[in-house]
């Protein structure tokens, strides 16, 4: 509805400002915070039974959690796996219909035009 539009626009604006920061700025403070968190969690672990023995499934889970910004030994792989969607879905099909030459050319032209105005 209409009242939502301005809110959505504002949220998007806020996200935009962060993109430069996301790439160049925040990583240091982020990793520092993460390492601190790690230290805290390891302390609590040791009080129980030490973190030498880890159940088999849990290690995988930990590896999953580690995969964000701070795993320095992450796999060197340029392929990025996105979640697969079911492309027989009618809504999904219509969402990219105009990216094909079989779609609406005027809409596609608009898309390019908007990009040029954005300069």
């Amino acid at each position: 509805s209409k009242w939502k539009e301005s809110l959505i626009a504002r949220t998007l604006m806020r996200q935009n400002g962060n993109l430069m920061q996301l790439v160049y700025g925040q990583s240091l403070s982020n990793s520092a915070a993460a390492s601190q968190k790690e230290r805290e969690s390891s302390e609590s672990d040791e009080s129980e039974d030490g973190n030498f023995f880890i159940p088999k499934g849990q290690r995988e889970k930990m590896a999953d959690e580690k995969f964000d910004d701070n795993d320095i030994n992450a796999e060197d792989c340029s392929k990025f796996k996105t979640k697969l969607r079911k492309w027989s879905d009618e809504n999904l099909i219509s969402s990219i219909r105009d990216r094909f030459v079989t779609g609406d050319w005027s809409k596609a032209a608009q898309r390019g035009k908007l990009a040029n105005d954005g300069e």
Binding site: L12, N16, L19, M20, V23, Y24, S27, L114, A115, G118
Partner: peptide, 20 residues
């Protein structure tokens, strides 16, 4: 992008295009 900054000293200006 981070590696490029570290080795080449090149920083990108990153601007999202919200309409697309």
């Amino acid at each position: 992008l981070r590696n490029i900054r570290d080795f080449l000293g090149v920083k990108f200006v990153i601007k999202p295009d919200t309409s697309t």
